[in-house]
Design a protein around this nucleic acid. Sequence first.
RNA 1: GCGGGCGUGGUGGAACGGUAGACACAAGCGACUUAAAAUCGCUAGGGCAUGGCCCGUGCGGGUUCGAUUCCCGCCGCCCGCACCA
Length: 851
Amino acid sequence: MSRYDPATIEPKWQAAWDKALTFKASDDKTRPKYYVLSMFPYPSGRIHIGHVRNYTMSDVIARYKLASGHNVLHPMGFDAFGMPAENAAMANGGHPKDWTYTNIGDMVEQMKPMGWSFDWSRMFATCDPEYYGQQQALFLDMLEAGLIYRKNAMVNWDPVDMTVLANEQVENGRGWRSGALVERKELTQWFFRISDFSDELLEGLDGLDDWPAKVKLMQANWIGRSRGLQFAFSTVDAPDGFDRIDVYTTRPDTLLGASFVGISPDHPLARVLERDNAEVAAFVADCRRMGTSEEELEKAEKKGLDTGITVRHPFDTSVELPVYIANFILMDYGTGAIFGCPGHDARDHEFAIKYGLPIVESFEPVEGGIDIAAEPFVPQKSEKVRYTRLIAGAEIQTGEEAVDAAVAFCEANGVGQGVTKYRLRDWGLSRQRYWGCPIPVVHCDSCGTVPEAKENLPIELPYDITMDKPGNPLDRHPTWRDCACPSCGAPAVRETDTMDTFVDSSWYYARFTAPRATTPTDLAEADYWMTVDQYVGGIEHAILHLLYSRFFARAMIQTGHLPATSAEPFKALFTQGMVTHAIYQTTSDEGRPVYHYPETVTLKDGNGYLDDGTEVQITPSAKMSKSKNNVVDPVVIVDQYGADTARWFVLSDSPPERDVEWTASGAEAANRHLARVWRTVSEIAQADVPATAEDDALARETHKAIRDVTLGIESFGFNAAIARLYAFTNALTKSRAGTAVKRDAARALAQLMSPMTPHLAEEMWQMLGGDGLIANAPWPVADEAMLVEDSVTLPIQVNGKRRAELTVPADMLKDEIEKLVLAHPAVERALNGAAPKKLIVVPGRIVNVVA
RNA sequence: GCGGGCGUGGUGGAACGGUAGACACAAGCGACUUAAAAUCGCUAGGGCAUGGCCCGUGCGGGUUCGAUUCCCGCCGCCCGCACCA
């Protein structure tokens, strides 16, 4: 008899699906739609096992929804602009475009054998002129709608990648890709007005019931809404135009504890002072030199310089507070100026001690007893405290109550107003790189900055460039850069900055609904397909990509490219865990770590040995890394075991949101199991056994499996669904039921496995004489009548501990059960002749005797 | 520092407040075989006086007839943010 042979059956069924256009999204808009999307990959040239897990998850959903009668859209494309292509070109002398398209071809070739149900007819790469040309059209519409503007600003400069970065792309003061320490630089840049949407983006999170709470929380923190008071101090002896200094505070209740005012080195007043004060100029220059990395900030001393200017306290004009320029005040938060309250702020306390400023108490613990001079008193705002210098409200109140009362009092007395501020800054989109979407504007001597005319789109990247010199090749490409002004026709120059690659991925989900449209979207298509019903991707995009996409959906509604109903582009979000692998390490004579490939290590009783017997040190469940030699290559796995085994394994063993460790033994076991299923089914297909007494039991088992696996898939409990399929397979294999019932059970098994192991499932379906492709077969529905048991086994507890069990007819009355329970020897023994205090019978579940 | 999450056998993990450890890995024993591989079967939380009993879901308390699950306080690990006024 033949064996389970994935190398034969997998290409066969892939060809069958292709031929039948099984996974092409239908134009039939009468069917309910389901849009499932996996985050598209960067075309590095190799798919990795993490992609396999990610795409298998969306594939399970897609195939399940297709079988459940939905018109499914499950597209795939490539996030194809970005630095790696330029780096490769610089290192190896090729062209970023050639490198990228070659990689895309290679990756598609590696993806197809996995059997994912992508609608490949909709595929695009963001570096296709057809895509980025529409992105340029979108840019022009957003520019016209006032959603994009240009300004001179301090920006994050990555000296290695030689480009500007958005705030979201700076991690611990380093570039998110290069890891280089980010510098501050002043440049004229294009910005998206994402901060105008701060409130909406924050409020919108509340409606995202099917997003992980963690992601919503991270976004909420990033947006960072705070409520406070903005008011002005009037100055004494300040330069012209600075008779007031605006400050923002979230603690107006401590205003009477103010002992100084601090301004940012970038504050307009500091800038005026540095012009004719050498001391100020030196100090400010020193501040700007300071890095922004975590370590540096941690170590950096809080430094200030007394400007000699003073301000009057708004509630007691006889009090004058000194104005310091301080290195820890950020110009781009609040007003770039604060009042210092050393009594109730750790940082201000440190500053006050250093410069000998007074420390004034505003409140104390209700029970008293605090030495504000020694240590600042900074309780939670929700805690009740006793105010010793009260602005408004009760003497004893919480910080929150006091802040509200203080804001109201200040407003009533004409001292400032309550305002809401956000931490979220506008998104700088200009990048000084070649391999990105050109920003479609030109600079004309007479007209200024002019949007390119839409009929000139796409503004295509020139191919004839060289990457051998640092910097942006567009800057030194005269025939591309020089152009005619779209407004007056005079000679002008193109903008040579390109767009941040996060722009490309901020609207690709919308483009997939009409990937060949000659406008960014086709509203009718977008109206039918949007929003994405299920999005699957990594948690690492919790802020960047997911926040930008939410902004873009809103911007596209404003510019008429999406229907108003799709402000939230992703209805449900699932963040999958990684696939990890053990690291095997020895130490060289020089003391350096040496990493060994898994195939060179033999495992025995949990220890690993090299061929020569040397024991290796094992780090379990580590992130895969080429330098640690612990990468699993999907291509190798497919050659060895077939795609179905790889798909089955990455879904089993761990909940999908958690990491799963790839082990050779686990993959082998998965493969063995699939071979066992194949064998069992091929036997059943050829058997001819008449009905037996076990028929009913197997039929019931089948319907229970249908119920449990369906529930598992719907709730993303893939590991639990697979565990259930193991159990069902074992039951089927061991059952002595007749062939007719066994065939029904095997057909159900094939269908329940089909989202995970689609090729094997088609093969099983064919062996069992199923109709057409299993991919199109309607999903089985559990028969309620078959789920009802005739008899139930009730555990009997005494005082909450299980002592016995009792099998009774399912419809037995409580009274009867109670009688049987009390007569049970184990219960009699436990009660020892005494009457039970209480008897709890939960029908169909459990009995508890309270002795 | 602030915010969030997680602690269950040798391992990954399962368990609407209702029989803790499903399912799988690793391990051990056995069958088949000249042998090995493959396959199949069995054992398996810990302990003990083993037809039975005791302990057990990080630790300590609480709510409940009943807690891995809910509440409070610790301990440990992981993640996010962080001079944000």
